[in-house]
Simulated assay, not measured.
Amino acid sequence: MHTISGPEPARFRMPQALRLWLPVVLSAVVQLGGTLWALERTGDAPSAQGALAIVVALIGPVALSFARRFPGPVVVITIAAAAADLLLAPVPQPPPIAMIFGVVIALIRGERLWVYIALVIAWSTVLLFGGAAGLNWHPARIVGTTLALGILIVIGESIRHRRQRSRERWQRIREQRARAERDERVRIARELHDVIAHSLSQISVQAGVGLHLMDAQPEQARTALQHIKTTSKDALDEVRGVLDVLRGDEAPLTPAPGLTQIDDLLRAITAVEVSSQQTEAGDVPDTVQQAAYRIVQESLTNVVRHAHAARAVVTVARQGRDLVVRVADDGRGGARESGNGVLGMRERAELLGGSLQVETGASGTTVTAYLPLGKEAT
């Protein structure tokens, strides 16, 4: 089966528990440790302000433990905690690691509105009330912090875009695999339909002849039984070949039929008189030969089963850059546009870039297929 195979490339993925708890532990260590270090440097006795600084330092890391399930609310909490740390905690403050993780996780998970609104409100609040809180920032620090927030957003957005492109790429690959497998199933179903329908129709006709002539003309009945044996053996070989392809075997039991096998196909038809008009077509690609053979086979099957015809003429000739295959009968009923057989023939022609026409009139039915020879033909 010709499909796009192979699993996605193996990529290192951090264990889920580690991905969940590493940001929590890292931010707790940095922020709590930094806050305790800052309190120790001030040398002040334990106070309500110090206790508040410790609580604020822990809010962000604790909130991060829920970031996978509630990224939007968590990013708001971590940004608010970082702003409160700036306004309430002693100087210098540790870096807001929890906020950094919260912003990146929220952006990756598509909670962009939460991030942007929370950052704008928090940063505006810090700039508005920073003076009252004793933050005498130099303008360069304000600009630097603003740029740092912008860089943080760019990092989160770039990770989100990269993951989205990766998901879209693998979605396209999965769709291509599914489409290739679906096309292959249709191709195999078409092959089985052509082989089985043609063979069973021939066997049915020959069995009827054998039963009719068994007593009166036993030799002709014997010939009919021989035809049944040959037809069923050839059909079994072809079905086994199709099933070998389905199983993934490289070499089928029988080669794919082509133009040289059309005469054998016509000789096996005994229910109607079949004549052939084939001209030299030059070098014809194997795919075109197989399609031509199957179209002739299915057309003759329709003649035997539906047309009530006495004669059929098969013509195979080259016309410009096309191989033209025509099967005409003098019966009535013939090929039906809505039938699976005609649908299969039309699909074979269109897959090669060609077309198929079915014309039904008082004088019979004519099936004409135009199969492009392509650049391979000379």
Rank of each mutant, 00 (worst) to 15 (best):
I269Y: 12
R321F: 06
L253F: 02
G282R: 07
R267I: 08
P257G: 09
V303H: 02
A256S: 15
V342K: 04
L253P: 12
P285V: 09
A312E: 02
D286N: 06
Y293Q: 09
P285I: 05
Q278K: 12
R305V: 13
N302D: 14
G344P: 01
V284Q: 04
G333K: 01
Q290S: 14
Q319S: 12
E337R: 15
Y293A: 10
S338Y: 04
Q290R: 15
G248V: 05
L246Q: 14
R321E: 13
A309Y: 03
T260P: 00
V342S: 09
S299Y: 04
Q319K: 12
G331M: 04
Q261E: 15
T287E: 15
A307D: 13
D264L: 13
L253Q: 14
E347T: 12
L253D: 13
A281L: 09
R321G: 11
H308V: 05
R305H: 05
G344F: 09
T254V: 14
A309S: 04
V274Y: 03
P257W: 02
L265D: 09
V274T: 08
V327C: 03
V272R: 00
P255Y: 01
I262H: 09
A292K: 06
G248K: 05
Q277Y: 13
V296K: 08
A251Y: 15
V284A: 10
D283S: 14
E273G: 08
R336L: 10
V313D: 11
T254R: 10
P257M: 08
G248W: 06
P252G: 13
G334A: 07
A271G: 14
S338P: 04
V313G: 05
A291M: 07
D244Y: 15
V327Y: 00
A291W: 10
N302I: 02
I269S: 09
A328S: 11
Q277G: 06
G339N: 02
Q289H: 08
V327E: 00
G339R: 03
V274K: 06
T279S: 15
P252M: 07
R318D: 10
G258Q: 08
G282F: 04
V327I: 04
L246S: 14
V296L: 05
T279E: 15
I295H: 12
